[in-house]
Amino acid sequence: MKIFWSFTRQAFQFASVYRFNFFVEIFLTFLRMYGIYWVWRILYTQKPGAFGVDMKQMVTYGVLGMALQILVWSRVQWYMASQVKSGAIDTDLMKPLDFHIHMLARSLGETIVGGSLALPGLIFSFFVLGVSLPADPGTAVAFFISLVLGFLVIFHLNFMLGSLAVLTLDIRHISWAYNSIVRFFGGQLVPLWLFPPTLAAIANILPFQSTFAIPMSIYIGKIAGADIFRALGFQLSWMVVLVLSSRLLWTWAHRRLVVQGG
């Protein structure tokens, strides 16, 4: 466990080297929150009944989407791709920790960075944009559990994308499409209940809503009561499936790994 945290700390330190960048990024996160705030606010003024939730909930959903985008978004696929490309992945494989767990530790470190970037924006949004807190402690706990599961789901999806880098070397272009699909079907910007029925049905099967729509809907109380357990169960099942397929894919990719020169 000690070694796990040391990799986490390392990733955190690496990402927080440039202090000026850090402040600008906090501002940019807030700018994104500000943008979506106005979109929902204007639409709400136009047609108050169309959301199915009130304006405070809608704005909270939008702002959380921007926070979660940097909070849970692991960059493990980039790390894996660049290590494969430079050949430095052999040093990772020699480390005294299972590669998959090592990557998880790294991603957790990045999440702490993401959290410290998102938190100022969230606090500011609470005062300026009227973002609300979870309705009661139970909701907050459910949100937190859901968030952890959401992180594990997106981590494993990204880990699998990173494993593909072993075979194709370059995942830069494919990640543009991948990122936008995850955000779209995850309900990061537009909540799934506003989707046309067919698209909503597709999004409801895919794992991506675990990362955004489910934790965010729990937070604003759109998913409540017994539905919370059903949603957490959905996330948990996807997580199990993704952990197993990540292990399988990595084992396979590892066998095919050819380290160049180096």
Binding site: V39, Q46, F184
Partner: peptide, 30 residues
């Protein structure tokens, strides 16, 4: 590389446009 890149860029833009479309579809206009 070009084919993959072009595919991804088109996909990304189509999804962005779809998001705008969904936002507006219920509200007629922004």
């Amino acid at each position: 590389d070009f084919i993959m890149g072009a595919f991804s860029v088109i996909m990304l833009n189509v999804i962005n446009l779809a998001l705008i479309g969904i936002i507006v579809y219920r509200f007629v206009a922004l």
